[in-house]
Amino acid sequence: MSEVLTALVHASEKSANIARACKQEEALFQLLVQEKKSIEKNKRFVCDFKTLADVLIQEVIKHDLGKKFPGLEDHIFGEESNEFTNSLGEKIKVEVCATEEGTAELLSKVLNGNMTAAELLASIVHCGVSIEDPALEKVAAEIPQDTMALWVDPIDSTFQYIKGYANEKTKDGVYSKGLQCVTILIGVYDRSSGLPIMGVINQPFVTRDPHSLRWSGRYFWGLSYNDINICSLQNDVNAASPAAEDLCEEGSRQKEEMQDGDNDLSAVISTNESDAIKSALSAVRLYYAAGAGYKSLCAVQGFVSVYLLSEDTTFKWDCCAPHAILKSMGGGMVDFRECLKRKSKGNVDELPELIYNTPVNGATGVDRWANKGGLVAYRCRKHLDIIMNLFSDVNP
C-alpha cells in the first residue's frame, strides 16, 4: 500500500503550511504558546512548550489519513494531547470538524475570539495539497493496512519554533539552531515486529524570501519493507537498492571515509552531552545542533556520519520517521548503550535496532515511550562500527 506513503507526504506538506502560517504573524503566534504540564514535559528542559500548531498538525494528520484509510486513525500516536486551554481557562479539545466553518469556530475559541486567524488556519486545514514528485509516483509496494501504525511528532524542536531564529548560518551544512532545525516527523512501523516501514521528514523552514519574508521548505521520504528499499534521495527510484557502502560514497565530504578510517568521520550531538561522550568523539569532526529530528536529518543527508545521543531524552515519535528513511538507505538507528554492552561481550553481529511497538516496562507518562538507551543514527554500518570503537573505555 504505497498510497500510504504518498498520503504521508501530502499530510506533511499541509502540516508545514500550518506551521508556516502560525509563525508568519508574531502577534498571532504569541496567542498559540502554552506550557506543557509536568506529565507531558521532556525532563531535559526546564520549560517545555506545546503550541496550537503542534496540536492542530497532529489532529490534521489523524483526520486526513483516517479519511483516506478508514481505521488507520486508531493506530496513529503522537507526543501531544489534543486539549488546549485559552486565556479564559477554558479547556478546548482541538479537532478537525466536518466543515471549514466548524473548524474555524472551534479554533476561534482557542484564539480568544480571533476569527480572522481562526478562518486562516481552518482554510489551510481543509485545503488540498498539490505535490509533484515523479519518484514518489513510481513507488510500488503492497503493505497490508492492518499491519501498520504511526508515530507523529507534529513539530520537533518546539523551542526553536517559538524562538524563531531566522538568520543562522551553517557549518558544513549543519545548523546549530534556528528555524531550520524544526521538523515534522511522520513514521510508520509494523505493529507486530515494531520495526519502521516508512517515514517522512518535512523541514518547513529552509529558505526565506528576502522581500516577502515568507518561508519555503522541503521534505524527505523513505520506505523499507521486505526487499524494497527506496528513498527520495535516490537518483533512480527504479534502480536496485544501493548498499550502505555505496551510499557512504555520496557527497564530497563522504568519499574518502572508507579509505581513511576515522580521519574524516563526523558526528552531531547535543550541547548537553557529557564530557565523557565529547572526549570519546574528539577524534572525529563534531557538530552541535538542536532537535532530534533535525540531527537525524543531518545523518540522512550525509552532512554527518552519525547522530549520537547517550541520554534517554528522545522518544518513539522522534525516531520512527528518520529511522525508516535511514533503513531504506542501508543504515539504521540503534540503542547506544545496548551496542556498548554487546560490544563488551564480543557480540557485534546483531545490531539492537530501535523498535516502536513496546513501551518501557514500569515507566509512566511520556517516559513509557522513551529511548532509554540513547541512540545512534547512521547511514553506513562501517561508520557505525568505527564510531562505536571510540567508546571502548566508556562504561555502558
Rank of each mutant, 00 (worst) to 15 (best):
G373T: 06
W317A: 14
C380P: 00
T364P: 11
Q259S: 12
L281E: 03
E273G: 06
S274R: 08
R253F: 10
N347C: 07
G346E: 02
G261T: 06
G332V: 07
E353D: 15
E250D: 12
L286M: 08
G373I: 06
Q259A: 12
Q259K: 15
A299K: 08
D335T: 00
M329F: 00
L265A: 07
K382M: 10
N347K: 13
S279F: 12
I269K: 01
K278R: 15
V376F: 09
K278L: 09
I325P: 05
V306L: 09
I355T: 15
D262F: 12
N357I: 06
C298L: 01
F336H: 03
A321F: 03
T271V: 13
A276W: 05
E273K: 11
G362C: 04
V366E: 09
A324R: 06
I277E: 01
K372Y: 08
D367T: 09
K255L: 02
E311P: 04
S328F: 00
I325G: 06
V300L: 06
G330L: 02
C319E: 11
D367N: 15
C319Q: 13
V306T: 11
I325R: 00
E250I: 13
D335G: 04
D260E: 14
G362W: 07
H323V: 03
I277V: 15
W369F: 14
K295Q: 10
K343Y: 09
G291K: 03
